Simulated scan of single mutants.
Amino acid sequence: MTNDCRPRLRSNHILKYADDTTVVDLIRDNNEAAYREEVRHLVDWCRGNNLILNVKKTKEIIIDFRKSRPTHTPLLINDSAVEVVSSTKFLGVHITDNLSWSPHIFSLMKKGQQRLHFLSRMKRASLPPPILQTFYRGTIESPLTSYISIWSGSCRASDWKSLQRVLRTGEKITGAPLPCIKNITDRRSPDPHRPQPPQPWTVFPPGVRQKVPQHLLQKDQTTEQFLPPGHHTLNAT
């Protein structure tokens, strides 16, 4: 369990997903003391929990838009310098040090074009259009629109055209109109004027639990909510 692996300072953030851990820090006035102390704390935590950090796979990316950047002192982990990169892949999203989404869009377009080949082979096999559309929606449209609410706001016009070419090719193969990618963006992007539904649960910090009242977990209500109707019919017979 990594629940006790938390940042020591408020300016730092630790993002954990499976076996990947990312340390994010906002550095002000060229003072990297808090950032480097957080990394040392993470290394000590891993050592105390019998975990080994792979320094060769550890990368550091610096996002700095100043014209004159100061000299960066290498970050050391176990006496080994961490490689500084200009782009990295975080949970399937390509992030660059200039926050350009063109590499990410190119990766999406390349993946979509590769899967269009399988879609055209399915059409040559005389599969019906509904199956072709289902294949497109599940294997091409889904990755094209993943994290779209993040990168769509600062995407270049040339990148949109690249994605639209994949869409038009899919329409030619399936023989039916497909949802426009920009319309999907508008549908998924949060609208500040749209009323949000009430949230029945409150997000608590790590280590804090809440006891659910028993009257909210009645047996009949829970069973009808989580079990499909076919389950009740089978039990009744």
Rank of each mutant, 00 (worst) to 15 (best):
T2D: 14
T2A: 10
T2F: 11
N3I: 05
D4H: 07
C5N: 11
R6M: 10
P7V: 00
P7N: 08
R8D: 04
L9G: 07
L15Y: 14
K16G: 04
A18R: 05
T21Q: 04
V24F: 08
D25K: 07
D25I: 02
L26H: 15
L26S: 15
I27C: 07
R28G: 10
N30W: 13
A34S: 13
A34I: 07
Y35N: 12
Y35Q: 12
Y35P: 00
E37Q: 06
L42F: 07
G48R: 15
N49P: 06
L51D: 02
I52Q: 15
N54S: 14
K56L: 00
K57Q: 08
T58W: 05
K59Y: 01
K59I: 01
F65P: 04
R66A: 13
R69L: 13
R69N: 13
P70D: 09
H72W: 08
P74T: 03
N78I: 02
D79C: 09
S86D: 15
K89P: 04
K89D: 05
H94S: 12
I95F: 14
T96K: 07
L99C: 13
L99S: 12
W101Q: 00
H104A: 09
F106Y: 10
S107A: 15
L108H: 05
G112K: 03
H117R: 13
F118R: 11
S120R: 15
S120F: 08
M122G: 02
S126M: 15
P129H: 09
Q133T: 13
F135I: 03
T139K: 11
E141K: 02
E141N: 05
S142T: 03
S142Y: 05
I148R: 05
S149H: 03
W151K: 10
S152L: 03
S152P: 03
S152R: 08
G153H: 06
C155M: 12
D159A: 01
W160V: 04
K161V: 01
K161Y: 05
R165C: 04
R165M: 01
V166S: 05
E171N: 06
I173W: 03
I173S: 04
G175T: 00
I181D: 04
T185L: 00
D186T: 10
R187F: 05
Q199K: 12
Q199N: 14
Q199M: 10
T202G: 07
P206C: 03
V208P: 00
V208K: 08
P213E: 06
L216V: 00
T223H: 11
E224Q: 13
Q225L: 14
F226V: 10
P228D: 10
P229F: 00
G230E: 11
T233C: 14
L234K: 10
L234F: 10
N235W: 06
N235Y: 14
T237L: 14
T237E: 09
